[in-house]
Design a protein around this nucleic acid. Structure first.
Length: 434
DNA sequence: TCTCATGATTCACC
DNA sequence: GGTGAATCATGAGA
C-alpha cells in the first residue's frame, strides 16, 4: 500500500513517485469538470481509506466492492497503470531483459549429455510458464490475503531446505568405494531418478508459488493499479528467484555425475589381477586348447561368466597369453606341465582321455584331440577348433604361412595323431617358426 | 626402490 | 573386427 500512498496526494491530485503533481486527465466526456473532480476525489479517498484498513474487515470488503462497481474505476485505473508504467516499471525494464544464464545452460547441456535430463525437461521458465498459464486460465479468483502469501512462502522455503538435504544425502558418493561396470549404470540411473523426482518437486513448488502470487496480484488489481503486464513481470521475477534453486539442483546433479564417472574411470584404469580361480580357469582352457588357443565367442562368454570378468578381458587375456607363451616358451612348458598334471589328476578315474600328461617328446601337455575335446569338470565351455568354430575371423587362415607355435610342442602330433605335414585334418596347422 | 608379472591400450595388418 | 606385437601402467614381492 506504500505505492498507493506515493501515487496519490492527500489533496486528491495525482502525483508521481517524487511527489510532483501530475496533469489531470479528462475521463468523462459529459460530466461537468467540478463534478468529475469530486468523483475522482471520492474514489481516491476511498482507496486511501482502504489502504489504511485491514483486509480482513468486512467493512473494507464492502467498500472494496463499492469501489469495484464504480463506473469511473476502469478509466481511473487505466490512467494510474499508465503512470505507473512510465515511472516505476520503466526502471526495471532494462534489468529484466537478460539473456539466459550461461551457467544454467552449461548445466543443462551436461545433464542432457549424461542422459540425466532431456529436452522435455525445461527449466524454471517452463514451470513459471505453466504457472502463468494456470493462473490466467480462468481459475476462480481466490481471495488470498497477506497471511496466505507469507505462509505459502514459508512452506515453500521449508520444503526446499528439507528436500535439498534429502537430495544431497541421496546423491552421496563420498563412501570412496570402487565402482564396477554394472554399478555405474545403476548409480547413474539412481541419480537420474532422484534428479527427476526433485525437479518435479521444484516445478510444482514454482508453479504453486507463482500461481499464488498471480492470484494475489489479480485480487489486488481490483483495488490497485496493477496491469496484466506487471503481473507478467512479477512472474519473471519469481522465475529468476526460483532459478537459483534450479541451478543448485542441477549443479549438485552434475557434481554427482562427475564424481561417479571419475570413480568409474579410475576403477577401470587401475589394473587388478584376476582372481586365482579365474586365472586357473583361463589357463586350463588355454593349455587344453594349446593347438588352437582361440576360443569362440561362446567360449569367451562362458569363460567370462565363470571368471567374473568381461568378454573383452578374456580376449585380452588370451591375446597376451599367446604372445607371452611364444616369447617364453621354456617357462611356458613348465607351466603347461603343471596344468597337465592338475587336469590329469582331476580327470583320473573319470575315464577322460582328453589329455596326455607329460606325453610328447617335449614332455608337453597336449590335447590329443587338437583342442576339441576340452573336458573341464564343467563341460559347458564349448570346445572348438579353428576348423570348427566357424568364426568369420579365423586367426589362422588355411593358406596362411603363419602358424600358432603350439605346434612346436606337438612334435608331429595333432589332434588325431597326424603329423604337421600338411596332411592333417587341420591343414592350417603347420610347423611353427620357433 | 627395483624387478617382474600382468592387464590394458594402441597400432598395423589381414 | 580379430589378431599379433609393442608398449604402457600398475600391483606384488624381494
Amino acid at each position: 500500500m506504500e505505492d498507493g500512498q506515493r501515487m496519490y496526494s492527500q489533496q486528491g491530485g495525482l502525483t508521481n513517485m517524487s511527489g510532483n503533481v501530475l496533469p489531470q486527465y479528462n475521463m468523462g466526456q459529459d460530466e461537468p469538470s467540478d463534478q468529475r473532480k469530486q468523483e475522482i476525489g471520492d474514489i481516491l479517498q476511498q482507496i486511501m481509506t482502504i489502504t489504511d484498513q485491514s483486509l480482513d474487515e468486512a467493512q473494507a470488503r464492502c467498500r472494496k466492492h463499492t469501489l469495484n462497481c464504480h463506473r469511473m474505476k476502469p478509466a481511473l485505473f487505466s490512467v494510474l497503470c499508465e503512470i505507473k508504467e512510465k515511472t516505476v516499471l520503466s526502471i526495471r525494464n532494462s534489468q529484466e531483459e537478460e539473456p539466459p544464464d550461461p551457467q544454467l545452460m552449461r548445466l543443462d547441456n551436461m545433464l542432457i549429455a549424461e542422459g540425466v535430463a532431456g529436452p522435455e525437461k525445461g527449466g524454471g521458465s517452463s514451470a513459471a510458464a505453466n504457472a502463468t498459464a494456470a493462473a490466467s486460465g480462468g481459475q476462480p479468483d481466490s481471495a488470498i490475503e497477506h497471511s496466505d502469501y507469507r505462509a505459502k512462502l514459508a512452506q515453500i522455503r521449508q520444503i526446499y531446505h528439507t528436500e535439498l538435504e534429502k537430495y544431497e544425502q541421496d546423491l552421496d558418493l563420498s563412501d570412496g568405494s570402487e565402482i564396477k561396470n554394472s554399478d555405474y549404470e545403476a548409480k547413474l540411473a539412481q541419480i537420474r531418478q532422484v534428479y527427476q523426482t526433485e525437479y518435479g518437486k521444484y516445478e510444482q513448488a514454482c508453479n504453486e508459488f507463482t500461481t499464488h502470487v498471480v492470484n494475489l496480484l489479480r485480487e489486488q488489481s481490483r483495488t490497485r493499479p496493477i496491469a496484466p503486464k506487471e503481473i507478467e513481470r512479477m512472474v519473471t521475477i519469481i522465475r529468476k528467484k526460483f532459478a537459483a534453486i534450479e541451478m543448485q539442483l542441477k549443479q549438485s546433479t552434475c557434481e554427482a555425475v562427475m564424481i561417479l564417472r571419475s570413480r568409474f574411470l579410475d576403477a577401470r584404469r587401475k589394473r587388478r589381477n584376476f582372481s586365482k580361480q579365474a586365472t586357473e580357469l583361463l589357463n586350463e582352457y588355454f593349455y587344453s586348447h594349446l593347438s588352437n588357443p582361440y576360443p569362440s565367442e561362446e567360449a569367451k562368454e562362458e569363460l567370462a561368466r565363470k571368471c567374473g570378468i568381461t568378454v573383452s578381458q578374456v580376449s585380452n587375456w588370451f591375446g597376451n597369453k599367446r604372445i607371452r607363451y611364444k616369447k617364453n616358451i621354456t617357462k611356458a612348458q613348465e607351466e603347461a606341465n603343471v596344468y597337465a598334471a592338475k587336469s590329469a589328476a582331476a580327470h583320473e578315474g573319470q575315464g577322460a582321455a582328453g589329455y596326455n600328461v607329460g606325453g610328447g617328446q617335449a614332455g608337453m601337455y597336449m590335447n590329443l584331440n587338437g583342442g576339441d575335446n576340452y573336458q573341464s569338470s564343467d563341460n559347458s565351455i564349448t570346445p572348438h577348433s579353428r576348423s570348427q568354430n566357424g568364426s568369420p575371423h579365423d586367426p589362422k587362415p588355411e593358406d596362411s604361412t603363419d602358424s600358432w607355435c603350439a605346434g612346436a610342442f606337438m612334435q608331429g602330433l595333432d589332434g588325431d595323431g597326424d603329423n604337421y605335414d600338411g596332411s592333417s585334418d587341420e591343414p592350417g596347422l603347420k610347423r611353427p617358426k620357433i
